[in-house]
Design a protein around this nucleic acid. Structure first.
Length: 283
DNA sequence: GTTCTTACCTGAGGGC
DNA sequence: TGCCCTCAGGTAAGAA
């Protein structure tokens, strides 16, 4: 599931083949994914040079020399595949497009970038780079958890006014941008906070304590993705998914990893999503 | 205004 | 082997 760390890993993997390179061909293989693709997307991409590949929350942002930015969201199952580039060298050998390959970008350097998304929850849009912050998907986002605007006073204040469970509040992209179901579970476990606890009822000390934990969990995941990036990409050209060692996520019924704890990991449903936690460690 | 539920979508995995 | 059912989850829109 692409959350912030996975998207950042994808960005780092795409950067050497896309940044500074011109798109010589854009093959748009369907009308859209979650939403229709923008008008004349192929025309607007063809010939454009990628100036910079950035990330905001879970969105990949490719600034083009046409004054537009290509916004990409990987949704639930989106992947970026690179062909024609291995061991730092470019070639022009590409596999035939497969099912669910929706957008294929050929770069002038010979690399091919393919957006594959079986569940089609992903999205692509184009907007003026100058107006990016006002884009409907971007303007509703809260601060970046790894950025300077996200700090203890901010989070304490944001949580204080939320009556929803802390799990739900941390999933709210307007409070923090980029956390998804998996990392919220991991963060709450490390913080020792029960997922059903009301956000507003958290002590300011515990709310503030979430800030460094969120940074640590995301930072470690990015590092783990980055360190496995090269080997992984050389294997099959795929970016974005790595087997992290989760402490609670997906571990229902298994023993808690905390030393001395005899509890087992439980699974409950909150807002239609699975929450994993240890009832002994998290209160 | 806030919070909760549902729809979107396909593949994987379990049960029979 | 194959069919049916459930589940996974980011986001938006509608409901409560």
């Amino acid at each position: 599931m692409p959350e912030l760390p996975e998207v950042e890993t994808v960005r780092r993997g795409l950067s050497p083949v896309m940044e500074g390179a011109r798109i010589v061909r854009a093959d748009i293989r369907r009308d859209g994914l979650r939403w229709p693709f923008p008008d004349r997307m192929a025309d607007r991409l063809t010939g454009a040079r990628v100036l910079r590949l950035a990330r905001r929350s879970k969105y990949l942002l490719a600034d083009l020399d046409t004054g537009e930015t290509l916004i990409t969201h990987l949704g639930m199952s989106g992947r970026m595949l690179i062909s024609g580039h291995a061991l730092g060298k470019f070639h022009h050998d590409h596999p035939a497009p497969e099912k669910h390959d929706h957008v294929v970008l050929d770069m002038e350097n010979g690399a091919r970038v393919t957006f594959n998304d079986p569940r089609r929850f992903g999205a692509m849009d184009l907007c003026d780079t100058a107006g990016l912050d006002a884009h409907k998907l971007i303007r509703v986002l809260g601060p970046e958890p790894l950025g300077n605007a996200f700090d203890e006073p901010y989070l304490m204040d944001a949580l204080k006014r939320r009556n929803s469970p802390i799990k739900t509040a941390l999933l709210d992209q307007g409070i923090i941008a980029g956390l998804g179901n998996i990392y919220v579970c991991e963060v709450l476990f490390r913080a020792g906070i029960h997922p059903t606890r009301k956000a507003a009822r958290l002590s300011s000390t515990r709310a503030a304590g979430l800030v460094p934990i969120i940074r640590d969990v995301l930072g470690e995941a990015i590092e783990s993705g980055g360190s496995s990036l090269n080997d992984y990409r050389q294997a099959d050209g795929e970016l974005g998914y790595f087997q992290h060692n989760f402490r609670v996520y997906g571990r229902e019924g298994q023993p808690c990893v905390t030393q001395g704890c005899t509890g087992k990991i439980r699974r409950i449903t909150q807002s239609g999503r699975s929450t994993f936690y240890c009832a002994q460690c998290q209160r």
